[in-house]
Amino acid sequence: YIGSKISLISKAEIRYEGILYTIDTENSTVALAKVRSFGTEDRPTDRPIPPRDEVFEYIIFRGSDIKDLTVCE
């Protein structure tokens, strides 16, 4: 799965898409590269977040912050 395009939804209901870079089982983290944030879209939340235009080089997510993770390709 390393190198695959991943769609990830955080506990804050924010969806991110990026390339799976590393999975650290010891620290329970997932790192994505070339990440875009799509905001909360239409998911119900107390704090709606708009999508962002910039592409983040890397984002490291803690396993406890991840609600859903899907391989896109």
Score class of each variant (00 low, 15 high):
23 I>T: 15
10 S>L: 03
67 K>M: 04
39 G>D: 03
37 S>E: 12
20 L>E: 00
22 T>W: 11
18 G>F: 01
46 D>F: 09
23 I>Y: 14
69 L>R: 01
57 E>V: 00
26 E>V: 09
28 S>Q: 11
25 T>H: 12
44 P>Q: 10
22 T>S: 12
40 T>G: 02
21 Y>D: 15
62 R>H: 05
65 D>E: 12
65 D>R: 03
53 D>Y: 10
30 V>S: 03
49 I>W: 06
53 D>L: 07
36 R>A: 04
53 D>P: 09
67 K>Q: 08
72 C>E: 08
35 V>I: 04
72 C>W: 13
60 I>D: 06
31 A>P: 01
25 T>P: 13
17 E>H: 01
30 V>D: 03
66 I>F: 05
50 P>K: 06
53 D>T: 14
69 L>H: 00
60 I>N: 15
27 N>Q: 14
36 R>W: 00
15 R>P: 00
34 K>P: 05
12 A>K: 15
68 D>A: 13
18 G>R: 01
72 C>K: 12
21 Y>S: 15
59 I>N: 03
34 K>Y: 04
35 V>N: 15
21 Y>W: 07
70 T>M: 09
54 E>D: 06
54 E>R: 12
18 G>A: 04
25 T>R: 12
50 P>G: 10
51 P>R: 06
21 Y>E: 12
69 L>T: 08
45 T>L: 01
46 D>Y: 06
53 D>I: 15
54 E>K: 15
23 I>P: 03
59 I>C: 13
46 D>T: 11
51 P>A: 15
62 R>F: 04
70 T>I: 07
23 I>S: 07
30 V>N: 04
69 L>Y: 08
5 K>W: 04
31 A>Y: 12
7 S>F: 15
48 P>C: 12
66 I>T: 00
12 A>W: 11
39 G>P: 01
50 P>T: 08
32 L>S: 05
41 E>C: 02
24 D>R: 01
51 P>Y: 08
60 I>V: 13
24 D>T: 05
63 G>E: 15
21 Y>C: 15
47 R>C: 11
8 L>Q: 00
3 G>W: 02
48 P>T: 07
64 S>H: 05
54 E>N: 06
72 C>N: 04
69 L>I: 07
51 P>K: 15
69 L>Q: 03
10 S>Y: 05
15 R>S: 00
14 I>V: 13
17 E>I: 08
64 S>Q: 12
64 S>A: 13
6 I>F: 09
32 L>D: 07
8 L>N: 05
36 R>Y: 04
52 R>S: 13
64 S>E: 12
62 R>P: 14
19 I>E: 06
38 F>E: 04
40 T>N: 07
68 D>T: 11
1 Y>C: 12
36 R>H: 07
33 A>M: 11
18 G>D: 02
64 S>W: 04
48 P>A: 09
65 D>M: 07
61 F>W: 00
27 N>Y: 03
70 T>H: 05
36 R>G: 03
8 L>G: 05
20 L>M: 14
54 E>V: 13
37 S>Y: 08
28 S>P: 05
58 Y>A: 12
23 I>F: 11
73 E>M: 06
71 V>Q: 06
5 K>H: 12
27 N>A: 12
4 S>A: 12
47 R>F: 10
9 I>Q: 02
68 D>R: 13
49 I>L: 14
46 D>C: 13
69 L>G: 03
66 I>V: 08
33 A>T: 14
7 S>T: 06
4 S>D: 14
6 I>E: 01
29 T>Y: 10
33 A>Q: 15
61 F>Q: 04
29 T>G: 10
35 V>H: 03
27 N>M: 09
33 A>S: 14
55 V>W: 07
